[in-house]
Simulated assay, not measured.
Amino acid sequence: MSWETSQPAVSPYRAGLSCRCPRCGQGALFKGLLEVRPTCQACGLDLSKADSGDGPAVFIILILGAVVVLLALLLESLVGPALWVHMAIWPVVIVAGSIWMLRPAKAMLIALQFKNKAEDTGHLERDEAGPGGPR
């Protein structure tokens, strides 16, 4: 990612939670559900190389999984519903929670990459000479 400016004017957490441009905080970051816009509509920041990878999905799986398991155990110990109730409730909670949490998590990771000036360095070439440098 080649970010064109230094520090953003907005907090990366505020920009991430509102799914806005990490530089100006005004333009929408996404077009559609999770597709990042090529450029910011407000300030023109090039977002074409912004990539959060799998990081947000991993965090959401771990966090949401722990919350759902705790809630399912709590429901089972307090009410003791039939098994079909669990099978009706928890898949809906997991899918809805994942979609609801993934957008801001992805936007926050992109905003933090912008703030910390993270860039893709390209291919990591293998150093044939070893740790001592070229021979």
Rank of each mutant, 00 (worst) to 15 (best):
85 V>A: 01
76 E>H: 15
88 A>Q: 09
109 L>D: 09
75 L>K: 07
77 S>N: 10
104 P>I: 15
98 S>Y: 08
84 W>R: 02
100 W>N: 04
80 G>F: 14
115 K>H: 08
90 W>F: 15
89 I>N: 02
74 L>S: 07
98 S>E: 04
75 L>S: 07
106 K>A: 04
108 M>L: 14
81 P>Y: 15
118 A>Y: 00
115 K>Q: 14
107 A>L: 14
100 W>I: 10
98 S>W: 03
112 L>D: 11
109 L>V: 15
80 G>K: 11
114 F>E: 15
100 W>F: 13
82 A>F: 10
108 M>H: 05
89 I>A: 02
118 A>P: 00
101 M>C: 14
88 A>K: 04
84 W>D: 02
81 P>N: 12
86 H>V: 03
105 A>G: 05
76 E>S: 13
107 A>G: 08
113 Q>F: 04
109 L>S: 13
101 M>D: 10
73 L>N: 08
89 I>M: 06
115 K>D: 10
73 L>A: 12
107 A>C: 12
84 W>H: 05
76 E>M: 14
112 L>Q: 15
116 N>M: 00
111 A>E: 07
87 M>I: 09
119 E>P: 01
93 V>F: 05
76 E>Y: 14
116 N>P: 00
84 W>M: 03
113 Q>A: 01
99 I>N: 04
97 G>V: 05
104 P>D: 12
109 L>I: 15
92 V>F: 12
101 M>R: 06
90 W>N: 03
83 L>H: 11
83 L>C: 07
79 V>M: 07
107 A>N: 10
94 I>L: 14
74 L>C: 06
74 L>G: 03
80 G>W: 14
106 K>G: 04
114 F>R: 15
77 S>I: 08
90 W>R: 04
114 F>I: 09
76 E>R: 14
98 S>C: 01
84 W>V: 12
117 K>S: 08
82 A>N: 11
83 L>I: 14
73 L>M: 13
106 K>C: 04
114 F>W: 15
119 E>L: 10
107 A>I: 14
83 L>R: 11
108 M>E: 10
87 M>L: 15
110 I>E: 09
110 I>P: 07
83 L>S: 12
119 E>G: 08
109 L>G: 13
103 R>Q: 12
111 A>Y: 04
84 W>G: 02
74 L>D: 03
76 E>V: 11
117 K>T: 00
74 L>Y: 05
88 A>E: 05
96 A>L: 15
79 V>L: 10
75 L>F: 12
99 I>K: 07
115 K>M: 05
75 L>T: 06
101 M>W: 08
83 L>P: 04
97 G>Y: 09
90 W>Q: 06
95 V>I: 12
105 A>Q: 02
92 V>R: 09
77 S>Y: 11
80 G>V: 13
115 K>T: 13
92 V>W: 12
91 P>M: 08
106 K>H: 02
116 N>T: 00
86 H>A: 02
84 W>A: 03
79 V>A: 09
74 L>Q: 06
97 G>R: 05
102 L>H: 00
115 K>N: 10
82 A>K: 10
